[in-house]
Design a protein around this nucleic acid. Structure first.
Lengths: 199, 199
DNA sequence: TGCTTTATTCATCACATGATGAAATATATG
DNA sequence: CATATATTTCATCATGTGATGAATAAAGCA
């Protein structure tokens, strides 16, 4: 087809590969995505994928996933407001991140792959334990003073809300959740979370 | 190794295959599970898998998944009690099904595979729409009279609880959820659902 | 200009996968 | 006992996968 050597500039293959990878990882998850499929999607020779990402599929995935969102900043944003609004603010910030098209495909890929992958679930669990239980609940006057056992329980219920929200809205696409405006969900789920804090 | 022909009886290869398949589908999901891996797990020649399940991997999966739980009976169980207890009863029945070791691996397989598989999500969505929105909410005096739009929204929140519960307890295994006794979760999540019904 | 680096294509490897045909042997049936 | 049938192993196939070496051509630099 094309002549053999370097193309006459302005092609940006690397970018095309990353974009195709993001799309396909998000849509099919890690396993069902192949390097050759990505190359096809990027209209590029498969060898190029290895050329730019020498670590192969794993590195490409890592690159796509790389810090789609900064957990520290996320937490900071949530605890910035008044304690009686943490529940709503958590949902608001959360949906803000997930509804952002820049993050969405990466996050979706993470979830779609992570649920079968073992090891990414560790990451999720860690985030819930440290960020949620360790920081957000410390920022609330009521939960901060609770015994660990009780804090764990409440953090669990909050985790259920978050995970349920992701899966319902972005993966399974439940009607009434996937098609609801973010503000509606903030009003529906926020108070449920808040109740776990205020007691 | 073994001689070529039929083994001297009492081996029950078919059962071993099914068991190994159930395990591996549950642990790794559909994609990461191979026929050869199943055969290895069942200590059986790979050809046997095809011999007993001529449809191959798809039929084997279908067989393993075959009606792990009857939705109609499930719904009937939930709406059997008084309306003011539907929330708790829903969680109770739900956990009863999922905590049963007979069902668990099949259900896990379904979820682990379904979230990347596109098409099983349809099934999930359908169950939530028909069973939850169409039947359970009809059985409650308050929600039965609500306009469809509002019913959808509430069903959505309930769906979030159910999906969140599955993912948190069985897939991600959040502390505070995975290790909680069923009764605790009934008391924690049940009222949240009930509130969506009573209004 | 000439040399080096980078980008791109082509040609393969080794391997795992799902699938199928054929041979061998135990059990079931007449 | 003879014959059919069910169960098992072996031997392959075609395909798709991730990976690598080598050739070629443009771009960058001396």
């Amino acid at each position: 087809m094309s002549p053999r050597g370097r193309r006459p500039a302005g092609e940006n293959a690397r970018g095309a590969i990353l974009e195709a990878a993001r799309e396909q990882f998000a849509e099919h998850g890690y396993d069902r995505t192949s390097l050759r499929g990505i190359a096809r999607g990027a209209e590029v020779d498969p060898r190029l994928v290895h050329h730019y990402f020498e670590g192969g599929k794993a590195e490409l995935f890592a690159e796509v996933m790389h810090a789609p969102v900064n957990p520290a900043a996320f937490i900071a944003d949530v605890v910035a407001g008044p304690p009686e609004d943490i529940g709503r603010q958590l949902v608001r910030t959360f949906l803000g991140v997930w509804d952002d098209p820049d993050n969405q495909s990466a996050l979706l890929a993470l979830v779609r792959s992570g649920l079968t992958n073992e090891g990414i679930t560790d990451q999720l669990r860690g985030f819930v334990e440290q960020g949620l239980l360790g920081q957000i609940m410390q920022a609330h006057p009521v939960t901060a003073g609770l015994p660990l056992r009780e804090r764990r329980r409440r953090a669990g219920v909050i985790g259920v809300q978050m995970l349920g929200l992701i899966i319902s809205r972005y993966v399974v696409e439940l009607p009434g959740v996937a098609d609801a405006p973010a503000a509606t969900l903030v009003e529906r789920i926020g108070p449920i979370i808040q109740a776990q804090l205020d007691s």
